[in-house]
Design a binder for these strands. Structure first.
Lengths: 343, 343
DNA sequence: GCCACCCTTGGGAGCGCTAACGTAGCATTG
DNA sequence: CAATGCTACGTTAGCGCTCCCAAGGGTGGC
């Protein structure tokens, strides 16, 4: 028995194979497979049947080259392992799924040079649009974004000058609002804990806004600590313990993200601390994980899914029309939860 | 002033533009930009200079079509929002970064039809290899994988028949080992809690292995519950509370993943339960998050990063050589943590 | 019964790049 | 100094598909 369907010996299928198998021209096959142009129902059925039995899969590489249309949207983000970017991706996907666009992700690990490299790689696929995290890029990356000739949406942050479009929140303001709320609630001996953030501009801006708000109220941070790597939950626990030992009279702790905040919160509850009256705590992001904790940590939502959706919608809108740049600043409200006393 | 670098009016740059700007043929430019073939240092420098000042970015679409080589590896996974697949991706990336291959991710949401669709889309880019989660696929998807003519690695699970290569653990065995360990430790009134898993075959296999081990010891599950959606941590908390109310004499709870397990654990600690003596608990995955909990939950590591690395290495090895299929079964050991009494 | 018209189908060119081969130019050798 | 070898670069011919345009064939109106 000769198995003509053996793939190991067979050269890859092309439109021509389907065309020969169904007795029509390549052009007609192409039209059927793309649902484009007028094709009679009879021919359509014949072609589809042939394509299916052959197991033909169209070659998008060739199609993209010929049509000069690549239905990809490059999404460039720093990381996929914390809880923030998967949710952004979810928002993007939910919008793009309704279109014929497809997201392709590149990871930068918060490294500017890697971002530049990833962007270059992405552009070499000639995507239809770019969604990129943050407003800070190398000069070369900025130039590439400007010259790409496709819609660019910078996401997460709006404290700065977008290249084209932007959607995000003001992290400086988020930090400031939290600082103000803490002072208003009467806390005075305040500690801060966050990641080493030379390259995480959004964390830095929150920190700066926070410190600024405290200063306006005549308060300085009583203590601060920056950590690196490791499980955020465990770090929050350990560092909270050591900081409280070092500065026992702290009455509030602001964490730069919910996960270390949750670690700290678990520790403080175990220690039987009086939360929120004797001691207050707050994080940032509004991650869903918080809903599983014994008490709800104060936080500010970073609107991740909403940002993803809006960014994707901006790209989609710019596929058909030639719209100008646009910036959307979302304004989440502080959720005091159970770890901050009322002002 | 006329700005010739204005991108809005300029047609996209091609090799020809760089070739004209540097006074050599397109072929030579191509060689320089790919670091291939013999080019004199002088010419190389001249071309690189021209490419850089023009801001030329190669068109990989055209390159891929001409060379019949697309350096993409399709990675098809059910989800990105739980903690398991980001780590797998990390393992894959760490290996591929040393090569000129690049991962492209497709998400299936655990839906077989969507998996089929995503696979079709991916194949239409003619990737160099496929990494796909699980051994269960629709017939059409199986056929595509067989006929793709490229290396295929099915990951996470080895309980079944791989199409080509596979790397993972036996989830049935993981469930069985946990069941055996629990019985050996003397627990008898055992509850189970997991996601509704009609489509999560690995969760189902763990469950089956678990129930089978109990049966061998003459024990039946005292109670079980399947949840859907929502924050796993919160669900673990709520469902543990309601199950303990319903069946107060339970002495062990097996959770199908660490996150609901952590939720349950937090609840039980708050209730002041006697863990592990009066009540034992265990999860699955070995997520890093566990290290931040007050006590360490018993679990079995799912070797996520290791699986990602091994899968990528299998693809890489098959780029140069024409190797046969291969299955790697990792065998993680049970980590009893602090929530299971010693056998 | 003939022509205009539309619906369907096919032919040719070319997207931007690279594999394969060809060739000019120079150095080396006996 | 002719024959040889090597390096550096150019030429040709597609890759598989889609765009543009034209042609065939059936239909309806007069």
């Amino acid at each position: 028995m000769t198995d003509t369907s053996d793939s190991s010996t067979r050269r890859p299928l092309t439109l021509r194979d389907v065309s020969e198998a169904s007795g029509v021209s390549e052009m007609t096959v192409s039209r059927v497979l793309r649902n484009r142009g007028d094709v009679s129902d009879a021919t359509r059925a014949k072609v589809q049947e042939a394509a299916r039995t052959l197991g033909y899969v169209p070659n998008k590489i060739a199609g993209a080259l010929a049509s000069n249309r690549v239905n990809l949207v490059a999404v460039i983000i720093p990381s996929m392992s914390n809880m923030v970017f998967p949710e952004v991706m979810g928002g993007i996907s939910s919008v793009l799924e309704e279109t014929d666009l497809q997201p392709v992700v590149g990871i930068t690990d918060y490294l500017p040079e890697k971002e530049e490299k990833v962007l270059y790689e992405m552009l070499s696929w000639r995507p239809s649009g770019i969604i990129i995290a943050g407003l800070e890029h190398t000069d070369a990356a900025r130039a590439m974004l400007r010259n790409a000739g496709i819609p660019v949406v910078e996401i997460m942050d709006t404290d700065g000058n977008p290249t084209d479009c932007a959607v995000g929140i003001s992290h400086r303001r988020a930090g400031r609002e939290m600082g103000e709320a803490i002072l208003e609630a009467g806390y005075r001996r305040i500690g801060f804990m966050g990641t080493k953030m030379a390259l995480d501009h959004r964390a830095r801006k929150r920190y700066e806004g926070f410190v600024e708000a405290l200063a306006k109220g005549g308060i300085e941070l009583a203590e601060w600590e920056f950590y690196e790597g490791g499980s955020a939950l465990a770090k929050g626990r350990e560092l909270t313990a050591s900081m409280l030992e070092k500065v026992p009279d702290l009455d509030f702790m602001y964490y730069s993200n919910d996960l270390i905040g949750a670690g700290g919160l678990l520790y403080c509850k175990e220690q039987g601390m009086d939360i929120p009256n004797g001691f207050g705590m707050a994080g940032f992001n509004g991650v869903e994980l918080l809903r599983g904790l014994p008490v709800k940590l104060a936080t500010i939502d970073s609107c991740r899914r909403e940002i993803g959706r809006a960014a994707a919608e901006m790209i989609v809108a710019r596929m058909d029309a030639d719209l100008p740049g646009e910036t959307i600043t979302l304004a989440p409200v502080l959720e005091p939860g159970d770890t901050m006393r009322a002002g």
